Simulated assay, not measured.
Amino acid sequence: MSPSQMPATGTCVLETVGRRTGRWRSVELWYVVADAELVLTGTPGPRAWVANLRVNPAAVVRLRDPQRQRAVVAREVTDPDRRRRIIVEAWRLQPWYAEQPYSVEEWVASSPVVVLDPRGPSIGTSEAVRVVRHGL
């Protein structure tokens, strides 16, 4: 499923490889589709899932509907102007973000903003994990 075929916002489960343990870690996160890309963001502050992706950007994302997984490669957004555009769009799509006690400036300065690029077609659970673990 491409971002253009997804709901504009929702929750997903992100599976990363732990940077210290090498074990799979799962976390449920809100996503938004911004600039036709699947983007993960959150309130300002450090996140273990971002630290894991910095060491190993290969991951698996599972969406609620359809119940499929996709192997992805994470790209952290560092350009302040692009971060601002994505965050403003995230606030518009997901009101929960705007209700938090942070300004847009604080979000731009220190929130995680990560784009998930698909690695091939949408695939079943075991196949997605195999793709990430073995790079096939």
Rank of each mutant, 00 (worst) to 15 (best):
Q100W: 14
V27D: 02
R70Y: 12
R75M: 06
L116C: 05
G22W: 04
V61H: 07
V114E: 09
V50Y: 07
M1V: 15
T16P: 06
G124D: 12
I86L: 10
R92K: 14
R133A: 09
P121A: 00
V17Q: 08
V129G: 03
V60L: 02
A90R: 07
Q94K: 13
P66G: 01
R92F: 10
L116W: 04
R70P: 06
W91A: 15
A74H: 00
G124C: 00
A109M: 04
T11V: 13
P80I: 08
A98N: 12
E99W: 14
V77A: 07
A8L: 14
R130D: 10
V104H: 11
A8H: 10
G18W: 04
P112N: 01
V114C: 05
A128Y: 00
E105C: 04
R92T: 07
I87H: 02
V32Y: 08
T21E: 14
D65S: 12
S111T: 12
E37P: 08
R75K: 10
V60Q: 01
G22V: 06
A34F: 00
V77W: 07
C12I: 06
Q100T: 06
T11D: 13
I86Q: 10
R92E: 02
T43D: 15
A34N: 01
V88S: 13
S110M: 12
T16E: 02
Q67G: 09
R62N: 07
L53A: 03
T125E: 13
E127Q: 04
A128Q: 03
R62K: 05
R54Y: 06
V131I: 10
E99D: 14
G22C: 05
A51R: 08
D65R: 15
R68L: 13
V129D: 07
D81Q: 14
E76F: 06
V131T: 06
G124T: 05
E76R: 00
S110V: 15
D79R: 03
T41H: 13
Q94F: 12
Y102A: 07
N52A: 00
E15N: 05
W107M: 02
E89V: 09
R64C: 08
V132T: 03
P121R: 00
G18T: 11
H134V: 04
V61R: 09
G124A: 01
D35W: 03
E15T: 09
L14T: 04
P66K: 01
R130C: 04
V72T: 03
I87N: 04
G120H: 06
T16A: 00
E99I: 13
S4Q: 11
W30E: 12
R64M: 13
R68Q: 11
S4V: 08
S2P: 15
S111I: 06
A109Y: 06
R92V: 02
V55E: 08
Q69F: 05
L14C: 01
R83Q: 06
P3F: 00
W91S: 15
D81S: 14
G10T: 01
T9A: 09
W30F: 12
P7H: 09
N56E: 14
T9S: 08
A74Q: 01
L93C: 08
E127G: 02
P44R: 00
T11E: 09
W49H: 08
G22Y: 02
V13S: 05
R119T: 14
P3M: 07
P95W: 15
D35A: 08
V13I: 13
A90V: 11
